[in-house]
């Protein structure tokens, strides 16, 4: 029994190390001098400590400074990419959560003809993998002239999310009728009930969905890759990949790239610090449902 617990703890420590180590390694590399790193690649601490990679990643270093620390000529406009990611993920998340909540209310709390049929039809979307709609959606965006615009990136995901509607409806079905009925007797219409009673009571699951949708969209790569090829709207995921692919393989500025990676992952890490506990619980919750 004692031995078993020891083995279990050992296993846990190894798993945690493998999970966390790459994050440390990003930091360690991002604070190293790219030239010096090749002489001491296995050092666990930053090699020849410098803020240079962050300066390069943020475009603050002069070409001479960059060259001195092994920076490549490849450029990445991180500030712009960061802004693009915020707009893309932020607007899409806002729209999809609000619209999903409105629809979920209608499906859960209102009586109307065709309700169950419409709900069933919308749910079919859960079965279809996104691959299948992405190519035709690209053609649609091209036809609409929305390539390389935020509209093209955001529209397809902004109005409808089968999972979000399903999730919120499930929650709203479980709300008690009493407050709502009292309001109806007092003469409140369905819209008033929705905005004054049901939505305020659903703040917690809506926050969960906001978090999950924001993370997924922030990390999305495939769709932005299809509809954008211009720096002006390119989100972080894409900017990072382009930065790596545009650098010559032999003299890749790993320190600069890791610094950029860290800046890109930072908002997610901040979310983690603030909402970590809620996230863990909500993942469990979505699983049980």
């Amino acid at each position: 029994m004692k031995l078993g617990r020891g083995v279990a703890w050992g296993y846990l420590v190894v798993v945690l190390l493998i999970t966390i180590f790459p994050f440390y390694w990003i930091l360690r590399t991002a604070l190293s001098n790219n030239f010096a790193m090749s002489t001491d690649p296995s050092s666990l601490l930053p090699v020849d400590f410098t803020w240079g990679p962050f300066k390069r990643a943020l475009g603050l270093a002069t070409p001479a400074e960059a060259a001195a620390e092994g920076g490549s000529g490849a450029k990445i406009d991180l500030a712009l990419a960061l802004w693009n990611s915020i707009v893309y993920a932020g607007v899409l998340t806002l729209f999809t959560v609000v619209f999903s909540a409105l629809a979920a209310y209608a499906f859960a709390r209102l009586q109307w003809r065709g309700r169950d049929v419409v709900f069933g039809v919308l749910l079919t979307a859960l079965m279809v993998p996104s691959v299948f709609t992405l190519l035709p959606n690209f053609v649609l965006m091209k036809d609409l002239g929305l390539l390389n615009t935020f509209g093209g990136m955001i529209l397809p995901g902004a109005f409808f999310s089968a999972f979000n509607i399903f999730f919120l409806r499930q929650f709203m079905l479980g709300l008690s009728n009493e407050v709502e009925e009292a309001a109806i007797i007092d003469g409140a219409g369905p819209l008033r009930v929705c905005f004054r009673i049901v939505l305020p009571m659903s703040v917690a699951p809506m926050a969960t969905l906001t978090l999950l949708t924001f993370i997924t969209t922030w990390n999305d790569y495939f769709w932005p890759l299809l509809v954008t090829n211009d720096e002006s709207v390119r989100p972080l995921t894409l900017a990072l990949a382009v930065f790596k692919q545009s650098s010559p393989q032999a003299s890749l500025d790993w320190a600069g790239l890791m610094a950029a990676t860290l800046v890109a992952a930072l908002p997610m890490l901040l979310l983690f610090v603030v909402f970590g506990r809620r996230l863990v619980n909500s993942i469990g919750f979505t699983g049980i449902k």
């Binding site: 209608a106 919308l122 279809v128 709609t133 959606n137 409808f160």
Partner: peptide, 27 residues
């Protein structure tokens, strides 16, 4: 309710039709 309900689900239904059902059939 019927009117209000359709109003509330309209964005979702629209999004479903334009960016899911139509692209799927087109695919």
């Amino acid at each position: 309710d019927t009117w209000v309900a359709w109003l509330l689900v309209a964005p979702a239904v629209l999004g479903f039709g334009v960016f899911f059902a139509y692209p799927m059939l087109r695919g």
